[in-house]
Design a protein around this nucleic acid. Structure first.
Length: 490
RNA sequence: CGGGGCGUAGCGCAGUUUGGUAGCGCACUUGGUUUGGGACCAAGGGGUCGUAGGUUCGAAUCCUAUCGCCCCGACCA
């Protein structure tokens, strides 16, 4: 045993613990720091996989809760399909296999037996679901089929980032069948709008809705629509997709129904999904150098109460905050942090890092004045509120924060969206501040390819109902046929 | 799959150049004093240094191989 320990002198570090790299120093590192320090995830012992910890999973549960309600409201039901897809089913749709082949994980052994047909771990479930649908549908009376599945999927990714791109992720996939092309198209657009509205209302993320180009569309679809959001580093993130599958899958999987006119027809299908990637979007749209900033409607805990427990006043403060917690519980998701092993200052920093929208401070001085201190996470502003006004003020404040966060995100996107037809300017912007660039485009695949090679920017979406400003493609000079949003993407 | 970086206590790191039997901060445990923006004192617990070989009297340190992770690209929710 040595006698060296406890030399007595401790470093007097009065600074805040520098746990998070500032955004401006290294954006990727900032992102990683935030998700690790807030205990949202942890890396798995295998590359590309992660554990989603309670702090992260609670956000996924909020997403599920809010989206699931919207799915039900639009007539959908949940179901569950197998994790594995036999090779032959996956191979039926040519574009589909080709698109997913490089990222498939295969099961080749069951117990000690080599399987006579390998099973792919689902990268998406069109193939297996279509196989079921071909048996479930006979008559026009069986349509529409409106089913959604919440599950995990596996795509063997070469480069991965927590939440944004991992080899396994959680998502929901809606799979519907319809009698007509019009009905399928309407469904595709309806669900796209559900996503857009959800992102805006709940996550305070303004999203651009539009159509994907041929290059960017889903493998096997007729048309793909998407919602795209702009992150605070100027890169775009595909937040959700909705596909009109046409009859491609119906034909190869033989999904037919006898229509009222006595003719055997193929169904028209759609599929649509969002994933745990949305958690990454939430972090990158709203987070700051102190950590997470959660919109009140998404926050698993909306309000945290931090009592200031001096020795003399400990009991009466504690009694007061317990009573306060009980009183607020009915109207907000509130949590009381009455741990005595941490100082109030430590708790302030901790809950700010975790993004809790509102903090209530209650100390002896507040008790004397029948008031509390409210501090909002997004702006750091503090205010004094009398106990009588508190529940009403809190409700109002949460609404204000939600609205302000959306407004700020929208303002950021506006400030980082350029419109123009100057390819040189575009190249410079994609190299420097990035953001979105709305430009007239010729619609040609090879032109898009060229832009990508030269700038690493891609077409994020072709917005609805928008005429190109100018008649020449900004990149190749050909005839402009549509307006396109370009950006570097995640 | 290319380019770069890194594997030493739960986390962050020092020690590797020049080989000598492992240390610091945070966290953790116990007791006490504290509590309005990351408190303090004292006493403790915890590591076969990614893995496998090799060189050596002796390897965290040198050599070889191997595995993994992170970042930046090519390909993709």
């Amino acid at each position: 045993m040595e006698q060296k320990k406890g030399q007595g002198k401790q470093a007097q570090n009065k600074e805040f613990v520098k746990e998070i790299t500032p955004k401006a120093v290294d954006y990727s590192q900032w992102y990683i720091d935030v998700i690790l320090k807030t205990k949202m995830m942890d890396y798995a012992p295998m590359k590309g996989f992660m554990a989603i910890r309670p702090a992260g999973y609670a956000l996924w549960e909020k997403i599920q809760e809010q989206l699931d309600r919207r799915f039900k409201d639009t007539g959908h039901e949940n179901a569950y399909f197998p994790t594995f897809i036999p090779q032959n089913l996956l191979q039926k749709e040519a574009d589909h296999v080709e698109g997913f082949a490089p990222e498939l994980a295969w099961v080749t052994k069951g117990g000690n037996e080599i399987l006579n047909e390998p099973l792919a771990v689902r990268p998406t479930s069109e193939a297996i679901i279509c196989d079921f649908y071909s048996r479930w549908i006979q008559s026009w009376r069986d349509l529409p089929i409106l089913i959604n599945q919440w599950c995990n999927v596996v795509r063997w990714e070469k480069s991965t980032r927590p939440f944004l791109r991992t080899s396994e992720f959680l998502w929901q996939e809606g799979h519907t069948c319809h009698r007509s092309e019009e009905e399928a198209e309407a469904e595709t657009l309806k669900m796209l709008e559900v996503y857009r509205e959800f992102l805006e209302t709940e996550m305070a993320i303004p999203a651009l809705a539009g159509r994907k180009t041929e290059r960017e569309k889903f493998a096997g679809s007729l048309r793909t629509y998407c919602v795209e959001a702009l992150m605070t580093d100027g890169r775009a993130l595909q937040a959700g997709t909705s596909h009109n599958l046409g009859q491609h899958f119906a034909k190869v999987f033989d999904i037919t129904f006898l229509d009222q006119d006595d003719l055997l027809k193929h169904v028209w299908q759609t599929s649509w999904g969002v994933s745990t990637r949305l958690i990454g979007a939430l972090i990158m749209v709203h987070g700051d150098d102190r950590g997470l900033v959660l919109p009140p409607r998404m926050a698993p805990t909306q309000v945290v109460i931090v009592p200031i427990l001096g020795k003399k006043d400990r009991d009466r403060v504690l009694k007061s905050v317990l009573e306060l917690e009980g009183r607020l519980k009915e109207s907000v998701r509130v949590k009381l942090d009455d741990r005595e092993e941490h100082s109030p200052g430590w708790k302030f920093n901790e809950w700010e890092m975790r993004g809790i929208p509102v903090r209530i401070e209650v100390g002896p001085r507040d008790l004397d004045k029948n008031q509390v201190v409210l501090a909002r996470r997004d702006t750091g502003e503090k205010e004094f509120v009398s106990n009588d006004d508190l529940p009403a003020r809190l409700q109002q404040l949460l609404v204000e924060i939600q609205e302000d966060m959306l407004a700020r995100a929208l303002e950021f996107r506006e400030a980082n969206t350029r419109r123009g037809a100057d390819y040189e300017e575009f190249k410079r912007i994609m190299e420097t501040e990035r953001g979105l660039y709305l430009a007239p485009w010729c619609g040609d695949d090879s032109c898009e390819e060229k832009v990508k090679n030269e700038t690493r920017a891609t077409i994020r979406c072709l917005p609805f109902d928008m005429e190109p400003e100018g008649d020449k493609c900004f990149a190749c000079g050909g005839k402009a046929v549509e307006a396109a949003y370009f950006a570097r993407a995640y």
